[in-house]
Nucleic acid binder design. Structure first.
Length: 212
DNA sequence: ACTAGTTCTCGGGACTGGGG
DNA sequence: CCCCAGTCCCGAGAACTAGT
């Protein structure tokens, strides 16, 4: 069985175990003043184990500080067991991943909205420009009533087309709006709609008797 | 007293890097 | 290439502690 040893090892301390061969004879503890090779090796091993346990403990302590559900809730020094710290850390990471996903979806939806609004802005600007460059265009005073009536006719037409969009869920609505924008909010289509509405109003206004 | 969790020590397997 | 020191990791068992 081979294990993955991708960790980084600490540099070797030349002060330890520098004369292993010369100490081999000490294993019978014939010299009480100096430790035998076995004893020194055992002591070094104990220290290394202590160091390893400290590192593990430090890691758990850090997790307990970082994960809100693991933080101490009272002054009695309450501490979660390691298994709970691990489980709560896992839960917290999963929660953070979910939050990240939600925020990314929200950001994408907002970006789509920005694109749609820019398309609409461009359309309106082109309509205004086209109207201003029409031959015979004169600045005449239009009443608020007529303006409202024109706007209402345009919006009614748009709403009629918009009402065909499927709204069973958000993604369908989202896709439907894009399709609707591309089909019914094209500059040319809007221009045609506007022309129709204005023609109708022009005819209607001419046939109306002047108000007294 | 019992139980569960933690800490510590010890022994041992496995791996790495340097030296002969 | 082999040996060895140093290191890491793991399991077992003992000791300790805190809660019930």
């Amino acid at each position: 069985m081979s294990r993955d040893h991708s960790f980084t090892r600490c540099p070797i301390d030349p002060g330890n175990f520098s004369s292993r061969n010369s100490d081999d004879e000490d294993e019978t503890e014939s010299k009480p003043s100096s430790m035998s090779y076995k004893e020194r090796r055992r002591e070094a091993h104990t220290q290394a184990e202590q160091k390893r346990r400290d590192a593990i403990k430090k890691g758990f302590d850090t997790l307990q500080e970082l994960v809100p559900a693991c933080k101490q809730t009272d002054v009695s020094g309450y501490k979660l067991c390691k298994a709970n710290v691990l489980q709560k850390s896992i839960d917290y990471i999963q929660y953070l991943e979910l939050q990240k996903k939600k925020q990314e979806e929200e950001r994408n939806a907002l970006r789509r909205e920005v694109v749609a609004l820019r398309i609409m802005q461009t359309n309106y600007e082109q309509i205004v420009k086209a109207q201003q460059t029409q031959p015979g265009h004169t600045e005449t005073r239009i009443s608020d009533e007529v303006k409202f009536s024109v706007l209402q006719a345009i919006m009614e037409h748009l709403f009629f087309t918009f009402s065909n969009i499927s709204v069973s869920n958000f993604s369908e609505l989202s896709a439907g709006v894009f399709g609707w924008l591309e089909e019914y909010c094209k500059p040319q289509t809007l221009k045609e709609t506007l022309v129709q509405v204005l023609r109708r109003h022009n005819t209607y206004i001419r046939t109306q008797p002047p108000k007294k």
